[in-house]
Amino acid sequence: MKLLSIIFFLLLGTFGATAQEAGDKLIGLWEPSNGKARVKIEKIGSKYYGKIVWLREPLDPTTKAAKLDKNNPDESMRSVPLKGYRMLKDFTFNGTEWTDGTIYDPESGSTYSSVIKAKDENTLDIRGYVGVKALGRSDVWKRVQVKQ
C-alpha cells in the first residue's frame, strides 16, 4: 500500500511537471500577422504575460519621440512607452490552451478577453473577444527565432 502511494505521488509529480512544461511552450518571442511589433511572452508567478519589445515604427510621426500609450483610458498612464508595454496579461494554462487572459490594443486603448491556442510549436492562434468568445477576432502569431 505504501509502495502504491509512492508510485501515485511520483506519477502525479511527473504529470504536473509535464503540464507545466507544455504551458511554458508559450514563452518566447512572437510576431503578430501585421508584423508591426514583436511580443516577448514570459512567466510571472504561475501566469503568462507578453510585452512589446520591438516596434517596426518606434517613433510617433507627430512628436518624433518614442511612441507612448496615448490612448490609455487612464490619463495618468499615457506617458507609458509602447515599447515595453505589457499587452498580454494573466493567461493561465489549462492543459490545452492559455485562458483567462486579456489582450490590449494600443491603437484603440481597448482591452479584450483573450484565449491562446498553439497550432504548432511556432504558431499561435490568439483570439480577442468581448463577452462571447464566438464573436471575437483571431490573429495568427509566428515565433521569432532568436539568433544565438
Binding site: I44, G45, K47, S79, P81, G84, R86
Partner: peptide, 20 residues
C-alpha cells in the same frame, strides 16, 4: 523608463506607476 505593476495568482495584473 520604468513601469510598475502588481501581480498575484488570483487577481489580474494592475499597472500602478510609471517614470518616463
Amino acid at each position: 523608463e520604468i513601469t510598475l505593476q502588481l501581480a498575484a495568482d488570483q487577481v489580474d495584473m494592475q499597472k500602478v506607476g510609471v517614470l518616463n
